[in-house]
Design a protein around this nucleic acid. Structure first.
Lengths: 353, 353
DNA sequence: AATAAATATACTCATAATGAGCATATATAT
DNA sequence: ATATATATGCTCATTATGAGTATATTTATT
């Protein structure tokens, strides 16, 4: 049935990726590191191949060392602390990424890099530690995901026309229909609106359509490996890719898209934001954090009603002084809310199938 | 920053676990295999140590072979097909399990077994292939999770009293309070009701309280490893453990608990059940599948309203003949429902924080 | 001091979703 | 013909949601 796994010869390596999230000044930020040639993608910067795309921004990454760490999560805590000085509090496993295409340079027979992604939510921003870690605006990587100032112009100016043309150009009619539907669902073309959780679906479409910088980079690498000449890339394509956000190493931006979708989904049914806020906060602060992650504006009075009547927060009696108008009351998170079925997801009996 | 992972010496092994789910005759079933001494836990059955618990039931498991498989998911498809003859359709990654405690026999320096769990939903039941795979009632492993015939008696007769005693006996007062709250949330003691999604939390409490067979087994193994004599286990404890469901190898039952919680959560906002049903079905069949997974009874008329008015299904015009009373109409799943925001999750604007 | 602007908080109201039940329709079993 | 089983349709009270108006309390400006 199952081989004895003690004897199984392996050719894969387990690493851990950290998506460390903080919200400050109404900006959702993630921690990035610079990755100049250490990762297997390095040949890009060799003089054999002139890279058309700069992809040196990466997610913090560390190996998993089973000798010293009882659990994956403890391993993560350990090297994140060393690299950034951050002491992670809320940590949640995101996904395990092990596709071959995540590293276009993997040689046949070379070890497969499998990495387990973890989301961490933190309050602090100050960094110390050994690395050159840096906070970056999450929406720098996904300019089409932030709707707080209205529908992003890039959607109608760039994304929709090019994506549409890409769909129409597909030769196989069945495949064309499938992708037309994917496009329609992901970008809310007809009937349906924009679903803020479909971040990954949108990213994948843009990648497949060759509009994202990573797609250009990967096709260049593939050509290089197979000994073909550099594929011809129009200036126009590079321009489009640049307008579609910062490129990251390997499949890191895909991981980031997965994380954003996950966090947005969780907002709806788990009191997750409180790990991003100080112990007491005004309702406006709370709302701004939710809006930052959701990428959308909410109705202030209804938000208050939801959160107060729903028993998620309770007033402290103190008030905030720094604001401009009438001072807001300070609230704290009601831990008991977790156990009360109203607050944390409507449960199954309200089955939505 | 990050070491060159190409050179990283590894001492972990990646495996894949499949949780293959089908619902037949109103029973949710999962596929299990027999695991007699192949897995690292084998010394249990050696004559050096007389096992007090039989734990030969396991989840299908296969190694991940990066040489031959482009993605983790493809690797899974491959060996599941070989072992069971099943052609998996809907597959979703569950979680990556890499804790040291998942294998009490891991020696210091031995390879760590990291396994990526996948959930698969299938319609068929007939099995072929090389293995001695077998379908088992999911609730045989979690007798307290099926509320369809009312509140399971075991909760009040066994679980609550013993768990309560375990909490009270904790010496550190702060730790005691934490566990009192965990207990109260997980089993819906006060204010809150029973939350059908908290399957893992309930399982973990029972494990920590030493009530589950796996807990007895693991403490025996630990004693054996550290050269201590067998811990004294009361007959009463074994009796309790037996009443709390079938024991599985390693941490397989924990994985199963994670899966049940995940599936139940998804029921609420994703049209997931349709992969368990034939192309056309009556609304009763649909409801029975949802109830089987949810472990709860639903209001028939409201279920119909939800599913029909919500646009999740559409009538075919044909009717089912086999039933006893008035023949039911056959419905089919409306694929378009995925793109219509109503059916698939309420989206963020209805932010529940 | 008076007024404007900004922010917080309270309340209203129409509409939609949910939970529970009664009523009717159409089949099989006796 | 009658009982029983199941499917389907409809009502109604309650709660949740989305959008707005009204009022309160502060700082900034004149």
């Amino acid at each position: 049935m199952s081989d004895n796994i003690r004897e199984l010869e392996t050719s894969s390596v387990i690493g851990l990726n950290a998506i460390i999230i903080a919200v400050t000044d109404e900006v959702p930020r993630i921690l990035t590191v610079y990755d100049t040639g250490q990762l297997p993608v390095s040949p890009l910067s060799s003089d054999q191949m002139k890279p058309i795309i700069d992809d040196t921004v990466a997610l913090p990454f560390g190996p998993f060392d089973p000798k010293n760490h009882r659990t994956l999560e403890l391993g993560l805590h350990n090297w994140v602390e060393k690299q950034t000085g951050l002491d992670l509090d809320y940590v949640e496993q995101l996904y395990t990424f092990g596709d071959r295409h995540r590293d276009p340079f993997e040689r046949a027979g070379g070890p497969r890099l499998v990495s387990v992604g973890y989301i961490a939510l933190v309050r602090q921003v100050p960094l110390s530690g050994a690395g050159e870690a840096e906070w970056q605006n999450w929406y720098d990587f996904f300019p089409w995901e932030d709707w707080r100032e209205g529908r992003p112009l890039i959607i109608d100016s760039t994304i929709k026309p090019h994506l549409k043309r890409w769909v129409e150009q597909i030769v196989d009619s069945q495949e064309r229909e499938i992708n037309r539907e994917r496009y329609s669902i992901a970008f809310g073309i007809e009937s349906a609106g924009w679903d803020f959780e479909r971040v990954l679906e949108r990213y994948e479409l843009l990648y497949e359509a060759g509009m994202i910088g990573e797609a250009l980079r990967d096709s260049q690498i593939r050509a290089f490996i197979s000994g073909r000449s550099n594929p011809f890339v129009e200036d126009k394509s590079i321009e489009i890719a640049q307008s579609l956000g910062t490129v990251m190493a390997l499949d890191n931006r895909r991981i980031l898209a997965t994380a954003l979708g996950r966090i947005r989904g969780k907002l709806k049914y788990r009191p997750v934001v409180f790990d991003l806020l100080p112990a007491t906060f005004t309702l406006l602060q709370l709302q701004l954090v939710v809006e930052a992650l959701g990428g959308v504006r909410l109705h202030k009075q209804n938000f208050r009603r939801l959160v107060v009547t729903g028993g998620l927060v309770e007033a402290t009696g103190q008030r905030d002084s720094l604001s401009r108008g009438r001072p807001a009351e300070l609230f704290r998170f009601r831990r008991e809310a977790i156990s009360e079925r109203t607050a944390s997801g409507v449960g199954l009996p309200a089955a939505r199938i």
